[in-house]
Amino acid sequence: MNRRLSPIQGVLVAVLGLGGLLIVLPFLWMVFTAFKTPDDAYAWPPTLLPKVWIAGNFKKLFELIPFGQMFWNSLWTSAVIASFNILLGAPAAYAFARLRFPGKSLWFNSHLLSMVVPWQITLIPTFLLVRWFGWVDSFAALIVPSLTSGYAVFMLYQFFRSLPRSLEESVLMDGGSWGTALRYIALPLSSGAVAAVWMLSFLGNWSSFVWPSIVLNSPEKMVLPVGLLALQNHFAINVPVLMAGSALAVLPTIVAYLFVQRYLTDAALSSGMKG
């Protein structure tokens, strides 16, 4: 019996498809509205497709705010932070998963604590610290406090624990160090997980708002989410221009997600939430 053709399966897929429209349609509306004239966007009854396709909203977007600069700032700072999260997080996660050393549970629990403490508690003192270092309105303020991430360490820790020990043990038996075992055995085996954690960290920083809005002031240092929200309050703003900005901010994340989605949801699963 071919179960795929059964009526129950048809109903399941139809219901899920209808629900899926609730996710797809808003994104489509966002993209199409970015090409509408203001009259068209505010027309009643609302339509999905533009009556006349115009590209002027994107031009206006780049006139109102330094969108290209903001996009670039978000891109490179998120990439740098995500890379450091791996660079610092993978060795730490590996040590927590495999090695015995003094203070291990204390250091591990410190990482967990940094994950669960509400951000409101640490926000103001972290700002004071950054101000004391003289980093206000510099990219250092954005990057340095996020060099490591409790989420990244925890997700990689979960993954390393799931690897078989035998290969690493053979390295150690042959006189290799723990560094060799990490570099040549554990890391190559975890490339999928590392990519997923990198991407989750990148996406998290790409959309992060509160911290950059507090430590960065100059327009030329602004990141994308902060610039977008500022746009909302701009006197010359209208819905099509807002949607043009939103679409340009969202589309790269969707493309990146589709590339690594299989690993991504598995990694997110291991931490129980989004990183």
Partner: peptide, 14 residues
């Protein structure tokens, strides 16, 4: 899972 990975500001504006 898609909305999870998009930009909060952008989807809120949307």
């Amino acid at each position: 899972y898609l909305p999870m990975v998009t930009v909060g500001v952008a989807t809120a504006l949307l």
